[in-house]
């Protein structure tokens, strides 16, 4: 029996670097796979790949996205199946080529082939607004905009929203790419003290719906140190729970938004409970 799937294509993007695109791609991909979905995550950061490292698959890369585009390898040869979740796959970027090796037609073909085999295709965009980033968003049905509550990140996100509304295939067809905001590296007590932009500030400025709020946490660093998405490495930690809830919202579930506590005391209790 050949069950024909039709994947939803997501791009995880931000404009600014270092805000958590790769971490979020890995965490959401693993969370969706854990929830029973068939997921492939694609690294579009040609020349500076890192999704393989964050997912702990860096020593299993044989072929990559560019090899597939150039016909050096077939798509199934380049897909790496996750060791922990059998319905999670990674398509790595090339480390040696430059971003010009990506072609629009090539990416279109790869996405089209993956669409029939997966439920979710998650494209991890490189930072910036150049070729890699525009091709990562090119065929997206929906975009997850990763933003830190900080001025330069919010500005770049605004710019990326503009690109999603003009440079994607869906936008060119006169349709609208579904856009959702994922706020990462959030410090509740800093926001409470007025030292950091609050969730409301960011939402008001960018005016797109909120997918989730991921608090700043040492668990994220710990997970990347050991090469495991935070949702698998410490599933009960506050960032992992935020990612799991975001994944369930992506699946269409209605889950009340959990805003990490804005008082330090409660926030600490939260960590205390997790450790117990």
């Amino acid at each position: 029996m050949n069950d024909k799937k039709s994947a939803r294509v997501l791009v995880v993007t931000s404009g600014k670097g270092g805000v958590g695109k790769t971490t979020s791609t890995a965490a959401l991909g693993a969370a969706l796979a854990h929830l029973g979905e068939k997921v492939v995550v694609i690294d579009f950061d040609v020349g500076l790949r890192n999704l393989d490292l964050v997912m702990g698959a860096e020593r299993r890369v044989v072929f990559d996205l560019i090899n597939v585009i150039h016909g050096v390898a077939k798509l199934p040869q380049a897909l790496i199946r996750d060791k922990r979740l059998e319905n999670l796959h990674l398509l790595p970027a090339s480390q040696t080529r430059d971003k010009d090796a990506l072609t629009e037609d090539g990416v279109a073909k790869v996405i089209a082939e993956l669409r029939s085999k997966f439920d979710w295709i998650i494209c991890d965009s490189p930072a910036g607004i150049e070729r890699g980033a525009t091709l990562a968003m090119r065929y997206a049905d929906a975009a997850i905009i990763v933003t830190n509550p900080e001025v330069s990140s919010v500005r770049d996100s605004d710019r990326i929203i503009g690109l999603l509304d003009s440079k994607t295939e869906k936008a060119e067809r006169g349709e609208c790419v579904d856009k959702q905001l994922l706020i990462t590296r959030y410090h509740p007590w800093r926001a409470a003290r007025g030292e950091m932009l609050s969730i409301d500030d960011v939402l008001e400025i960018l005016s797109i719906p909120l997918l989730g709020i991921v608090p700043e946490s040492e668990e994220v660093l710990r997970a990347s140190n050991v090469g495991s998405p935070v949702t698998l490495n410490s599933p009960l930690s506050s960032p992992a729970r935020a990612y799991f809830e975001a994944a369930r919202r992506l699946k269409g579930e209605t889950i009340p938004m959990y805003v990490p506590s804005e008082s330090r005391g409660i926030f600490n209790k939260l960590f205390g409970r997790k450790a117990a």
Partner: peptide, 17 residues
């Protein structure tokens, strides 16, 4: 905190807007 003008977030917000 905002009333006493301790935080810089309101400035960030206004500059961004």
């Amino acid at each position: 905190f905002k009333l006493f003008g301790r935080g810089s977030a309101p400035v960030a917000r206004e500059r961004l807007q």
